[in-house]
Computed example of a mutant assay.
Amino acid sequence: MSHYSHTLPAAAAAKFYLEQGLCVIGEQFGEAERHKHPEVLAAFMQACALAQIAEVHLEQLDSLSRVLDRGFGILASSLDCGFQNLDR
């Protein structure tokens, strides 16, 4: 299954999950079975959507972590310079 940008509109994402779900379920259980159990397709689509949400949140947390690391680095450097000036 290929990934796509998380900026994809919701309807396009749902269509993508639907198409992927039908394909995967058909491969797993047979073409005749894939339309007989819509609850399996719904569960597949929900799992995909939740995985995408988790991926977006991880990207945002990673970005926040980098910003905080830079900020704490600047703060530590400033404090270090301040303490060095006190020693003079």
Rank of each mutant, 00 (worst) to 15 (best):
V67S: 03
E39F: 03
F83V: 11
K15H: 15
R66K: 10
S77I: 08
K15L: 15
G26N: 02
G82I: 00
F29H: 05
S77K: 08
A42H: 09
E59N: 13
H6V: 11
V56M: 12
T7N: 11
A12P: 04
F16L: 15
L18D: 11
A51N: 05
T7A: 12
L58H: 10
S78P: 00
H35P: 00
S65W: 13
R70G: 08
H3P: 10
E19V: 10
E27N: 10
Y4W: 14
F83W: 07
D87G: 06
H6M: 13
E33K: 04
L8Q: 07
R70P: 02
F83H: 07
F72S: 03
E39M: 00
A43G: 07
D62Q: 14
S78M: 07
Y4F: 15
P9R: 06
G26V: 02
F16W: 15
F16K: 13
L79P: 01
L79W: 04
S77N: 09
A54I: 03
E39P: 00
H3I: 11
H57N: 06
R34C: 03
A10H: 12
I74E: 12
A14Y: 04
S2Y: 10
Y4G: 14
F29P: 01
S63Y: 15
S63L: 14
H3M: 14
F44G: 02
A13I: 04
A47V: 04
Y4P: 04
Y17M: 03
L68I: 05
L86I: 10
S78C: 08
A13V: 06
A42Q: 12
Q52L: 08
E33S: 06
D69H: 00
I53A: 07
A13R: 08
A13F: 03
G71R: 10
M1H: 14
A47L: 06
C81P: 01
R34S: 02
L75Q: 04
I53G: 06
Q46V: 07
E31N: 05
Q46F: 11
E59I: 15
N85F: 12
V24Q: 03
A76D: 08
L64T: 09
Q46E: 13
L75V: 06
E55Y: 09
H57S: 04
Q28G: 05
D80I: 11
L8V: 11
L41D: 02
S63C: 14
E33A: 10
S2I: 06
R34N: 03
D87I: 08
S2H: 12
D80N: 08
M1S: 13
V24L: 05
G30Q: 02
Q60D: 15
H6Y: 14
V67N: 00
Y17L: 03
D62Y: 15
L58A: 11
I25L: 04
S63Q: 15
H37K: 01
I74T: 10
H3Y: 14
I74Y: 12
S2M: 10
H57K: 05
L18R: 11
I25G: 01
G21F: 01
L18W: 14
A76C: 05
Q20P: 02
Y17E: 01
A42V: 08
E27I: 06
F29V: 06
D62S: 14
A13S: 10
S5R: 07
M45Q: 09
M45K: 10
S2K: 12
S78V: 09
I74P: 02
L22P: 02
R88G: 13
C48I: 04
